Computed example of a mutant assay.
Amino acid sequence: MSEWISVCDFDDIDDEDMVRFDHAGHTYAVYRVEERVHATDGLCTHEKIHLCDGLVMGHVVECPKHNGRFDIRDGRALGAPVCVNLKTYPAKVEGGRVLIQI
């Protein structure tokens, strides 16, 4: 059964940026773009590098190691060297807090 987990205050994430969130032995990346929040697995599918050390440009996150890119809205891998999509998670803001459903 999935549950909503509180991550941080909405204002803790700058626009076109992300935060790392670790919960129950799993790493997530939580993004803020255009006043909306998105959540994905926190590790690149190519070499398991933390995406939060990378760069957000619009709805794209770029891995810091080999510049693999993913669409944060649906987790889609956008080209070599990444070819496996990221898992995404529902995310929302309630009462100024960012929540993700895992």
Rank of each mutant, 00 (worst) to 15 (best):
M1F: 06
M1Y: 09
M1E: 09
M1I: 04
S2W: 11
S2K: 14
I5V: 14
S6M: 05
S6A: 11
C8N: 06
C8A: 13
D9N: 15
D12S: 14
I13M: 04
D14A: 15
E16H: 10
D17I: 05
M18I: 08
F21S: 00
D22Y: 01
D22S: 14
H23D: 02
G25C: 08
V30D: 00
E34W: 02
E35K: 14
V37I: 04
T40M: 04
D41Q: 11
D41V: 01
G42Q: 03
C44I: 03
E47T: 05
E47D: 04
K48M: 14
K48I: 03
I49H: 06
H50I: 07
H50R: 12
H50Q: 11
L51S: 04
C52Y: 04
C52N: 11
L55V: 11
G58D: 12
G58I: 08
V60P: 00
V61A: 09
E62T: 13
P64W: 00
P64C: 05
K65H: 08
D71T: 05
G75M: 07
G75D: 13
R76A: 15
A77V: 08
V82G: 03
C83W: 09
C83Q: 10
V84F: 03
V84W: 08
N85R: 03
L86R: 00
K87I: 02
T88F: 02
K92W: 12
V93K: 07
E94D: 14
G95A: 12
G95R: 10
G96W: 09
V98C: 00
L99I: 11
I100L: 11
I100H: 00
I102T: 15
I102Q: 08
